[in-house]
Design a binder for these strands. Sequence first.
DNA 1: TGGAATCTTGATGAAATCTTGATACCCCCG
DNA 2: CGGGGGTATCAAGATTTCATCAAGATTCCA
Lengths: 232, 232
Amino acid sequence: MNPNPTILIIEDEPPLQKFLRLTLSTQGYNVLEAARGDDGLKQAPTAKPDVIILDLGLPDMDGVEVTRRLREWSAVPIIIISARGKEQDKVAALDAGADDYLTKPFSVGELLARLRVAFRHASAANPQTGDPIFQVGGLRVDLSRREVTIDGKAIHLTPNEFRLLSVLVKNAGKVLTHRQLLREVWGPQSNEETHYLRVYMNQLRQKLESDSARPIYLLTESGVGYRLVSEI
Amino acid sequence: MNPNPTILIIEDEPPLQKFLRLTLSTQGYNVLEAARGDDGLKQAPTAKPDVIILDLGLPDMDGVEVTRRLREWSAVPIIIISARGKEQDKVAALDAGADDYLTKPFSVGELLARLRVAFRHASAANPQTGDPIFQVGGLRVDLSRREVTIDGKAIHLTPNEFRLLSVLVKNAGKVLTHRQLLREVWGPQSNEETHYLRVYMNQLRQKLESDSARPIYLLTESGVGYRLVSEI
DNA sequence: TGGAATCTTGATGAAATCTTGATACCCCCG
DNA sequence: CGGGGGTATCAAGATTTCATCAAGATTCCA
């Protein structure tokens, strides 16, 4: 899941709109809004929200219809909020494809808890498509598993070494200036400590290169910075 | 989904038990029953129900605890039915891993509709990958039975030890940060109590490693966190 | 209610990592 | 040939992070 999940609120009453916007953004969610069904249907494909909160009583079209239209192409979790509490309303909405149904008035805590359930479902439905793995020659870097191997052998890196390598991996093929590397690894105030770079680059080479004096992966661009080759 | 989906009902009141059994089997569902929490926990791993309906008010243990135990190894949809309608009860159950929460008395139609939602989720989730048993070297962890053996010998773990190990097992091979582990085991508010981790990781090593000073399963990633090796 | 198991917490030495200074290197240019 | 800027390497503290022991609290269960 993204660090900041996005919620699309389709709701026409301004007070409730405002209330939801405030509550959810305070929780750190990214909030999008639509006041009409057609607007919501238009926003959803481009905005790709992680969850949709949908009021059944919209001015232009029925919420059940909105649900059905969304389900034609998307599996995004839909939480209904509605003033109608009759069984047949709930059944209709749930069978149209909604995932949950809250009757107004509802408590904030419950809404948030049910949202967390929806997010769990969303991230379970989108299994990670495998970790992004960088590979060149015998060097292999799996950033998300924090794993580095050279010719199949696992290499242990210290936190700073790993951070430095991961900046290089994310910009493989490009030259990174001393200044850029220092900022990324040691923070914005360390711009001049070029010596750090020399020490750590050397340590990386000792661990990754078979001949650290003649590196094939971690190249020096004299007077500029360093570069990790992207192909061999 | 199977042609005849299976539902496990964990419910102690005989009248409601009977009512659910009749209603659901009439709908063509295959019904299993447990009157106590521990019985339900015992049936679940072998019966592999497609959905679990769980009453919070069980005689032997709290329903939230049952939920948490199930979630240690299974993603099966759990629908709570409960007489307690307070917000904090709902939040606790949903955050423990439940997927839905119905307050008694509820209407049959709504229950059936929410069951259909649960089945949709169950079939959307990834196919069962057999028993959730983790094994590497001489270490074997059966999450659903809470059994840990090392070279065939059973090992007794305390609740916290087991929770810590199960988080590591579920992410075997990956480095878990101190923060992640603390959140999973001690709850979201304990982010800084790194000392806990040291103590419990040490206890796990005492029990699982032949030489706890030179661990082969539970590795330290200094400055980052810990990792359970996924292959030897 | 008593005893056992478990959890929490503090203290201490060991290990890993980071920082820093000293020194040798290499290559280009005059 | 010699100087100088930029670079590589080594290694000794300083600092942070870890492992370990053990003594109270607390909880659990009979």
